[in-house]
Write a protein that binds this DNA or RNA. Structure first.
Lengths: 205, 205, 205, 205
DNA sequence: GATGAATGAGTCTTCATTCAT
DNA sequence: TATGAATGAAGACTCATTCAT
């Protein structure tokens, strides 16, 4: 007990707890993304997170709360990648480019998060918080589609459908790479962006 | 075993067996598509198929073999929808239309099959047969993309990526509808096809 | 497969199931009566009943349902001991003697049942069926007390209290023997009956 | 550890420790009496006692030691209620009245203690100290019964049985009230005492 | 061949106990 | 000395699979 060293402050404990919480979320994300909610046993998560099985239940009420924690964590990170410091003064094509680049950055930096968010059938266990997050995180994109359509830039398709097509195309691109069909090059990514832009707005425009 | 009753002929037995096999596959498809592989108990499948739990194991070695059976069944049906009597003498745009319409027909007629094929994270349990089937069933589309690119009709993107983008866009469209974001109208479907065609080939072409 | 032997009929299966049900109830009664509801693990019951742990859950929905099953079983048996072929035409003293003898017979024949019914604090897990059974099985005694009081034979105490005193005295007698303080002789039992009769009705009567 | 503050004197420390010990015993009593030994978690006791979970293990070696502590505490308090300043120069009927009144006072003042002592199935975890205490605390009553019998006042029944009957009758009275069958009035209590006295000694006496 | 009762390994979750702070 | 976070063994319960009928 060095007198000059202050007793372990609350914040140290909190930092420890936070680190453990992160480790658990990380481990859960890794396993859930690979095998789905029902395919993963809680003790497996504990082992990968280097904690005891019981410890998980100090941080999450049960397995469902854990998967919702992972979901919210991943979705929030995705939203940060997509929208932090987004310049809304760009023209539509520039905005589209920003969106595409940011989404790509997320898929590249955080492939596990991306896989988790896209691969699972979350519906049966998502709670209200998660569901609201899902809706909120799509709202800006939907707004963009709606505006672009009103301005006669985007195609005359319901904006939800337009968003679904582009989002789906991007997901298809990443999944096919994941499945090992090819490796995405920089130029392919750019060409894909261009192709999706043409999907977004009529070619004659 | 009443001696006066002639033993059922082999073909009758076989027909019975075939019917039971179908019932099991059907039930498994329904449940797996709704809750995923790990979310479904084998006895549940038996109950829905109106057979004993043990009976399933006369037709499938274990749960993994069952899900592979379902996968192969669904994938084969999809291939039939896509390629049976396909007229390869159409021009690219017509072929694209055929493909789009047939895929749509499948998603409409067999939503459960579609959902099963797209929704799950199959990788961890698919066997070699299933994986080969996956590749085979995509081959004609890949060929189409490759040819169209060689003919300078399609965009200059790796055909795998092109295919992935369009397939992904279609899946996105259907999933978003499933998720309740909107209901697809006939005109939206047509507009989506047109949009995806523009994704497929450069707008200036 | 002896042709003269009929195929195992449903009733054979049912008899098997019934035997297993009984074995489980018996084992559960033994363990619960010794260590209480929370002191017994379900697999322990299974082991003592010579069945697999999972089998218990084919017969009882969960541990609570099991303990309720045991309770209802024991309470029904007690009621049978007390009231089957009871001659309601006896005079009060004779009725009292019948009651005392029958209760004693039950405690002697089925010490585990008696111990289970008296030793536990059942309240937190008893279901409606069990609670109704409890009330029903006490009703005839309560009626007897009420009538005897109306006829000025019994003491002028609320019949519920009278019943509680006598039932409690009997339970005390048995418990003390269980605890090893002494061994009840025939004559002691008779003297105790006589003493409780004097508790029941005023000595001067 | 501020040097200017004098270290708490030993007696203060001891008083603190004693208070904590009491708080733990109190909390344990409350919870055990309500849900039984196996139905209570040690951290729950800690929470109710406003101490850390680990603290309990500084005062009691383990959960069994804790429940024995509670038992000894409750039993000692009961003995104090029954025998402190007891006037052994009263005649038997007066002694009986004293005993009955004191027991009632205990059940009324300390219903939780009473419930704990009577409700549980203690046998499996009580240690030697507890068991000896049980015997010791009953000794004076047993002596009283033995003497009264020798003096031909009490019934000619083994004193252990006599004691068991009366104790059991009292317990029955209290338990039935606890169970909600009725509310004990003052006059009922007196009548019950009178009835138990008649149980104790022959009516003709 | 078909059945479904039975099984026990494996799941989620709790809790008595420890130990770093 | 007191704490309460951490642990992992143990408990309630499920389910893939087997096997007697």
């Amino acid at each position: 007990m060095d007198i000059t060293t202050p007793a372990p402050s609350i914040s140290v404990r909190e930092r420890n707890a936070e680190a453990k919480n992160q480790a658990i979320l990380e481990a859960a994300l890794t396993l859930f993304s690979a095998r789905g909610f029902h395919g993963v046993a809680v003790p497996e998560v504990a082992k990968l997170a280097n904690v005891g099985a019981g410890t998980i239940y100090r941080y999450f009420e049960n397995k469902e709360a854990l998967v919702n924690g992972v979901y919210q964590h991943a979705k929030t990170l995705l939203a940060a990648y997509l929208f932090d410091d987004f310049d809304f003064n760009q023209n539509p094509r520039e905005k589209f480019h920003s969106f595409w680049s940011r989404l790509r950055q997320f898929a590249q930096d955080k492939p596990t998060h991306f896989r988790f968010l896209e691969l699972q059938d979350h519906a049966p266990y998502l709670d209200v918080v998660s569901r609201n997050l899902e809706i909120q995180s799509l709202a800006p994109i939907l707004t963009f589609c709606t505006q672009a359509r009103a301005e006669k830039i985007a195609r005359d398709i319901p904006p939800e459908a337009l968003m679904a097509l582009i989002w789906g195309a991007f997901v298809g691109l990443i999944k096919a790479q994941d499945a090992g069909y090819y490796t995405l090059s920089e130029s392919t990514f750019q060409a894909a962006e261009s192709a999706c832009w043409d999907l977004f707005c009529p070619p004659s425009a």
